[in-house]
Design a protein around this nucleic acid. Structure first.
Lengths: 256, 256
DNA sequence: CCATCTTTGTGCACGCGTTCACAAAGACAT
DNA sequence: ATGTCTTTGTGAACGCGTGCACAAAGATGG
């Protein structure tokens, strides 16, 4: 998983553990695929394999939602799709705004995954006046000045931030002030929000760095197993890469 | 954090807990910002606030790297930047390939966060012959047929998959066969890989669904606290959103 | 109606991660 | 040199998440 988490710690929402909630979309995806192939029932073992998790974990996850399985048979695919959808709140319509229509914001606007499953892109917002009115993914971009009005008129409670890092906190504050209570943040910054507001973070740079760590470790172990020179390949340079460019800003939108 | 995780469970790599590794990039970012402002030292309390974590946790995290602090003073910013960079393997060059140059792939190619910190986009690969040769972010797109050769010639060990879901596993298999051992997956699928290969997942759709869950819960609690009508606002429809389009495919690349 | 077989639901134990709280260590002033 | 004050580094307790292993439940066949 490539993601950070800025959540109220350990809030077992209505008895459903956070870890379980995070897996429900995974199960739902696998179940939807089965549903399309008209598979009527599925065992915990099969479904777990499809979702890439342990079958006992899956059964325990489902037990938090209630007892929807039949012993000796398995789970009814259609019924489970419905139950999970309902639990996740996907049976209702969620208007979403995307702020910051640079490369990434535009890609998100075009992303099919948003449209499906109850999420609807209600508006695209950018600080660049030149962008205003220009359609992206068939939706005209609106100027930041309209942000509050857009949020209120459309009853938006979920906002996506795809601005450069410098603008993210400002945008976040305005979104929250206007009534947004859930934020998906793609900007490489730590956002601070009042209690009651959820923030989830997607940070490409961080994911790569984590991979690099493990990659380096693999290379080190390998060399150690082979040559076994005390210093290993991790001797490299000493104090030479101190300075580095500013943090990877998202494409370009809004003045900081 | 918006990210899934497909990791070998609880592998404490060289004594450094996985949870700590995931926070190191966060600390590094905060430290880099301090470094640019020429701040010489920082206390665990200050740095923890900047990174949005508990100060005790931060100190324990650093203790896994060694004792780099001075009691009564704090941590030397420059030194810590260097130590963390080295630990994460960012003092060396990591060539990366991006496979699937649709909207998302193109946005990733343009993303500044890749270029900084030792990551270099070595090649862009797409299955569409019409894309071949066309430059994206200044780099010419190459055809999938060249994949193996590109990986080997450039010594690539990290691959980014931004193809539609249907093509992801195939691409993954080819990357792994060619020598890639770390994968960042943006396609909405569970990838299966042999032992020794790390996969990190970034799934926009899943992040939104998790937000929706909490959003729904907030709305439910609110209504319960106010009106307290047994059914609440979560009565809605019953069994009507069973069918749904196929899963949100990433833009478009490669035939499935 | 009974026996057998499959699969769920869960009690239990274990380990990781987080946090508190404090002793040790060093800076700094006198 | 000594005392005070700040801040680190960590011991210990707690809670969450995971996975094993098994009993209960129900289907299925005779």
């Amino acid at each position: 998983m490539a993601t950070g988490r800025t959540h109220r710690p350990a809030t077992r929402s209505r008895g459903i553990p956070e870890a379980t909630v995070a897996r429900l979309p995974l199960y739902l995806r696998a179940l939807t695929a089965l549903s399309e192939r008209s598979v009527p029932t599925v065992s915990s073992e099969e479904l777990a394999a499809a979702a890439g998790v342990n079958s006992a974990k899956l059964r325990k996850d489902f037990s938090y939602l209630g007892s929807y399985g039949t012993r000796g048979v398995g789970y009814d695919v259609e019924y489970l799709v419905y139950q999970i959808s309902r639990e996740l709140g996907l049976t209702q319509d969620w208007p979403v705004v995307i702020v910051g229509i640079g490369n990434l914001g535009a890609a998100l606007a075009n992303y099919g995954g948003f449209a499906s499953r109850g999420f609807r892109v209600a508006a695209l917002i950018d600080a660049d006046p030149a962008m205003a009115g220009r359609p992206v993914a068939g939706i005209p971009v609106q100027h930041t000045d309209e942000l509050e009005k857009i949020i209120e008129d459309n009853g938006v409670s979920i906002g996506v931030i795809a601005t450069p890092a410098g603008a993210a906190q400002q945008v976040c504050d305005r979104l929250v002030a206007a009534g947004v209570t859930s934020i998906l943040n793609f900007a490489p910054t730590v956002l601070s929000v009042p209690d009651g507001v959820d923030v989830r973070k997607v940070d490409l740079s961080i994911e790569l760095q984590i991979l690099a760590f493990h990659e380096q470790r693999k290379a080190g172990e390998e060399a150690e197993a082979a040559g076994s020179d005390g210093s290993g390949p991790v001797a490299a340079a000493r104090q030479e890469s101190a300075e580095q460019g500013p943090d990877g800003d998202v494409p370009a939108v809004m003045p900081a």
